[in-house]
């Protein structure tokens, strides 16, 4: 089970800008570091982070080995209608994590 912490407002005024913050546990191993016995530790990073609002993509980010472990991403979106924000992280070694938050727009 993946560990994710998401910070998004539960309610928002129609047309207002909301900030969504997401923190995920991941080693973000660069693939450049030697481990014990001098062997290179294979790369294991999150490659892509996407966010959707009621299925429509609102944010997309490609991650690189230079990003530190446990990446924290914050982005903004315009609250146009009530719905579900879907967050999805995909990466090396078949890493897939999905998380949902519901935002009610008044």
């Amino acid at each position: 089970m993946a560990n994710v912490l998401v910070n998004a407002p539960k309610t928002a005024k129609r047309g207002s800008v909301v900030e969504i913050k997401a923190l995920i546990m991941h080693p973000m191993e660069t693939g450049f570091r030697p481990g014990t016995m001098g062997k290179i530790i294979p790369r294991n990073i999150i490659e892509r982070f996407t966010a959707t609002w009621n299925g429509t993509e609102i944010f997309d980010m490609e991650m690189s080995p230079a990003i530190a472990a446990n990446p924290f991403v914050s982005f903004f979106a315009v609250a146009s209608e009530s719905g579900t924000v879907g967050l999805r992280w995909t990466g090396d070694e078949g890493f897939v994590v999905e998380e949902r938050v519901v935002i009610a727009v008044e």
Partner: peptide
């Protein structure tokens, strides 16, 4: 608590 990685 949602930005502190220790909370993970």
């Amino acid at each position: 608590d949602t930005a502190n990685p220790g909370m993970l």
